[in-house]
């Protein structure tokens, strides 16, 4: 199923790349046919005016596409940009939408992430409300997601602007790391959610560690997010440690996360702690649109000399001001002076 949909997506991507922006193949006479991440095909009447969007990252993309004013309902986790807070909450997350509240909003379209269940989709379809599901946490899918949302709100140009902003920096990372030896990749231990819960090669963070020129010490382990023994981390002796903090974490909170971690028995003797290469980063710059900021930080932490001229905080500020008209960026990493 997924493979099938990926195939279709590839074709779509291919068509876009081939024909550029002049031709909009799926749009015909105010009608748009779109195939989402789950492989479901929806036919939509354009323009779409009322959108219920149940994902923080997807809401963010809609705002960046300058379509924020079309959103009429959100999930409780969507907190950015601040304008979104004035919208009614109609779900805790895509996993648990409040159907009646959503129907009352009379949306033209529901956008959700992959946590949305099939029966919910069916229920909405029974009321003739189309549903589009995307997976913003999947880095490989990000550009396609932006393109699909751009099509839905008829902001293709803005979408391409976004994509090129992101891909420029991704290319920058790749170009600086060309010819990197395996030995030059620092050993990275990445952790989220609870002590010693890491991520293997099957996880979505693994490609980012790779992209940024690091070597994930838990890549070979069983399961997507294995809990590893302290002994393993100590024996593997990571050179860089990355700890995840919740969305909107304050500097103080990140500081505490770091302090607690560096005192831990399994970590305190590692090279990373001794050389003070333990970093905390929030999910704000890890998923969706700003994920490129996370990649830039990773790259800078892994290869400080190569990326000495790059200031991820400045890039973040640029992204925010360019696409969200926000002047000041909240700190999203700790420590911020490397």
């Amino acid at each position: 199923m997924v493979r099938y949909s990926n195939g279709l997506c590839l074709i779509l991507v291919g068509l876009f790349l081939f024909t550029g922006l002049l031709a909009v193949p799926a749009v015909a006479g105010g009608m748009l046919t779109i195939i989402d991440y789950d492989g479901f095909k929806s036919a939509l009447d354009l323009p779409i005016q009322r959108i219920v969007c149940l994902s923080p990252s997807l809401n963010q993309i809609l705002y960046a596409l300058d379509a924020g004013e079309r959103i009429v309902g959100r999930d409780s986790k969507s907190q950015f940009p601040l304008e979104v807070l004035s919208l009614p909450v109609v779900a805790k997350s895509s996993h648990s939408p409040q159907i009646e509240a959503i129907l009352e909003l009379k949306p033209d379209l529901i956008i959700a992430d992959t946590m949305l269940g099939d029966d919910h989709r069916k229920k909405f379809n029974q009321f003739n409300i189309p549903v589009v599901v995307e997976r913003p946490s999947d880095p490989e899918r990000l550009f396609q997601t932006i393109r699909n949302l751009a099509l839905l709100v008829e902001k293709e140009e803005r979408g391409e602007e976004l994509i090129s902003f992101i891909s420029n920096y991704e290319e920058l990372i790749k170009s600086k790391l060309v010819g990197l030896n395996e030995g030059e990749r620092p050993k990275v231990y990445w952790e989220w959610n609870k002590p010693y819960k890491s991520a293997s090669a099957a996880s979505s963070v693994h490609p980012r560690i790779n992209l940024a020129g690091g070597k994930n010490i838990c890549a070979e382990l069983e399961g997507r997010y294995p809990v590893v023994s302290r002994e393993y981390v100590w024996a593997r002796n990571p050179q860089v440690i990355i700890l995840m903090a919740g969305r909107g974490s304050s500097v103080e909170e990140m500081q505490v996360v770091r302090e607690k971690a560096v005192q831990r028995t399994g970590l305190k003797e590692t090279t990373a702690v001794k050389e003070q290469r333990v970093y905390v980063i929030t999910w704000d710059v890890h998923n969706g649109l700003p994920s490129v900021i996370g990649s830039l930080y990773y790259a800078k932490w892994f290869h400080p000399a190569l990326f000495a001229d790059i200031e991820p905080a400045r890039v973040y500020a640029e992204l925010l001001s360019k696409f969200f008209k926000i002047k000041e960026a909240n700190p999203c990493v700790y420590p911020f002076n490397h």
Binding site: L221, E222, S229, E231, Y232
Partner: peptide, 9 residues
């Protein structure tokens, strides 16, 4: 618990 699929807990 710690050795069955060592080093996964």
């Amino acid at each position: 618990a710690r050795i069955i699929i060592d080093p996964v807990e």
